[in-house]
């Protein structure tokens, strides 16, 4: 493993930031300060973190309804994100989008998305643009196990394959689409098996191991940048919380939940860092404190921001 200490620490920091951002969102949602639907990524942080560590601002991602992690890992600004969750004018989308629609086009973030499976064609289109413009940028599509049953999955992967587009399709298999267990929504164990149908490489990895994700996506990104076409990477993972806040998750087996919570990606990395003496306990405590501080500042920013003005209702419907 030739990953530098800085890189490992940045993985840890990013995962902590995502975790604390969302733990804060839980608290604020429960207190009625954040309206709408909030879908949490807690437990899945290693996927976005490991994947996006291979990308620059020129590369694109499409995200999902469970998007906070992807956005933070791709460089999204915490204060603008938090303000968006509050629906404030200073938020990423001027308060018009909310948690499910945060985007930062300058950072290549083509949006969280409220429509399951809608990111797949969009990521395919961004990959098309990268190839058309002959940049060496790539497009990474995050989507769930459930979304892999949409027709958009089939159409996107097929088109990307025949056009040899620089795309990486990352399936976050947390084994549920809301209450529906993978066993009931498809007849295969590994979604990566589907890659064969499109003539592209497919692999299944431990989505709770940030280093494994980083390495696998690195290869796929390299292949895409070289012009060799798309890949499908399935990351097996688990969401710790309900589908959205307010869902008690009764459809989950408590034993399975317990097993997976023990495989928490942040704890896994922390143990590895300590074991290999990459960091000391004190440094960990310091990093945690720092991450908390960033989140508190973001909340402060959001709370001190104003509601959008009424004329914003009718702006941005059309350009120009």
């Amino acid at each position: 493993m030739e990953i530098t200490k800085e890189k490992l620490l940045s993985f840890y920091e990013t995962m902590l930031t995502i975790r604390y951002f969302e733990e804060k969102a839980v608290e604020l949602f429960a207190a009625g300060q954040i309206p709408g639907f909030v879908h949490l990524y807690i437990g899945e942080e290693a996927v976005a973190t490991g994947a996006c560590a291979n990308l620059t601002d020129k590369d694109y991602i499409t995200s999902t309804h469970r998007g906070h992690g992807h956005l933070i890992a791709k460089g999204g600004k915490l204060d603008l994100m938090m303000a968006e969750l509050f629906g404030k004018a200073s938020g990423y989308c001027k308060g018009k989008g909310g948690s499910m629609h945060i985007a930062d086009v300058n950072l290549g973030i083509l949006g969280a998305n409220g429509i399951v499976g809608a990111g797949q064609p969009i990521a395919t289109g961004a990959a098309f643009a990268c190839k058309y413009k002959k940049t060496d940028a790539v497009s990474v599509c995050f989507f769930g196990d459930g979304a892999s049953n949409r027709g958009t999955f089939h159409e996107s992967l097929n088109m990307a394959s025949i056009f040899k587009l620089p795309a990486v399709y990352i399936c976050e298999n947390n084994m549920y689409g809301i209450s529906n267990n993978q066993k009931n929504h498809m007849n295969i164990n590994d979604i990566s098996d589907r890659a064969a149908a499109y003539g592209m490489p497919g692999m299944t990895i431990d989505g709770n191991d940030v280093i494994a994700v980083y390495e696998a996506v690195k290869e796929a990104v390299k292949r895409a940048r070289k012009g060799d076409g798309p890949s499908l990477i399935e990351c097996k993972t688990w969401r710790h919380r309900g589908h959205f806040e307010g869902d008690p998750g009764v459809y989950k087996d408590p034993k399975e939940q317990e097993t997976w919570v023990k495989k928490d990606p942040i704890i896994k990395l922390e143990e590895k860092l300590l074991e290999h003496k990459v960091v000391t306990k004190e440094e960990i405590a310091h990093l945690q404190e720092e991450a908390h501080g960033k989140i508190e500042a973001a909340v402060e920013f959001a709370k001190n921001s104003k509601d959008p003005s009424l004329d914003e209702l009718l702006t941005d419907v059309y350009a120009g």
Partner: peptide, 9 residues
């Protein structure tokens, strides 16, 4: 226009 997120809007 589309439905805005902000409760106020």
């Amino acid at each position: 226009c589309p439905v805005p997120f902000s409760s106020y809007l």
